[in-house]
């Protein structure tokens, strides 16, 4: 199998070097760049499968670079930035990035995200389409096999956890309160449900999300309930 190449672009050489080490651990090929212009040049010279891109850089900033890359390539772009505002994240994603990671990041989390994006990118189109499979993003629930897959990997769930996921995946984007979830899954009225449902939800999140505190799929709507994000 051909080695997958990652372009790392940041004006801080220490960060670029550290990322190189991590990526090489994961058996990725690494191309380094320190400015937006260099990144565009590297893209034209090498076959790149994924880009890690800083925002604040000299000559061409990360967002402009993202736009330029998107003009030619469909490869995943993960933005690395010290800007942690929600608006910054939304701007980055709107400009065509696939993910947004704030500095200082957890290296393991970043690697998980890289792998996730890489799997989604390389596996694109190879999945067998099954109409019965419930799907949002790269989260798939197969009711027949009673399996939950994230980026193609099977997640082990308890029956209760599976029941919750099945109920939520059937109605993606819809917010359900703790009480509603309990009554549907346990099939009995919630007299003393207390925090049973929230505890289960948290455990599921820890299994399926790269960063459970910033979930991608199973989201908490505070004071209202929970939902599966629709992608």
């Amino acid at each position: 199998m051909e080695k997958l190449n990652v372009l790392v672009c940041d004006d801080d050489t220490a960060i670029v070097d550290a990322l190189e080490i991590y990526l090489k651990y994961e058996n990725y090929g690494v191309v380094k760049a320190y400015t937006g212009i260099q990144a565009l040049k590297a893209l034209s010279e090498h076959k790149i499968h994924l880009v890690l891109l800083d925002i604040m850089m000299p000559d061409l900033d990360g967002l402009s670079t993202t736009i330029k890359i998107r003009e030619e390539f469909n490869i995943p772009i993960i933005i690395l930035s010290a800007k942690s505002e929600d608006t910054d994240k939304i701007t980055g994603l709107n400009f065509g990035a696939d993910d947004y990671v704030t500095k200082p990041f957890n290296p393991l989390e970043l690697m998980a995200r890289v792998k996730s994006q890489m799997r989604r990118y390389t596996a694109l189109g190879s999945l067998v389409s099954n109409s019965k499979i419930l799907k949002t993003g790269s989260l798939e629930l197969d009711p027949e096999a009673k399996e939950l897959r994230v980026d193609g990997e099977i997640i082990k769930l308890t029956p209760t956890e599976y029941g919750i996921m099945l109920f939520l995946m059937k109605n993606p984007g819809h917010v359900f309160s703790t009480e509603q979830i309990y009554e549907h899954v346990w099939n009995e009225p919630s007299y003393s449900a207390e925090n049973t449902v929230p505890v289960h939800i948290r455990r599921i999140r820890e299994k399926i999300e790269i960063n459970p505190k910033e979930p991608k799929y199973l989201k908490v709507v505070w004071g209202i309930g929970y939902k599966i994000e629709k992608y």
């Binding site: 309160s177 703790t178 009480e179 449900a193 207390e194 925090n195 449902v197 929230p198 505890v199 289960h200 939800i201 948290r202 908490v220 505070w222 004071g223 209202i224 309930g225």
Partner: peptide, 19 residues
């Protein structure tokens, strides 16, 4: 500002902090 259920919120929070 939204319509927030205080009880639900406390349940959720306690679920998060259970461990």
């Amino acid at each position: 500002a939204e319509k927030v259920d205080l009880h639900e919120l406390v349940m959720q929070a306690c679920g998060e902090y259970e461990e």
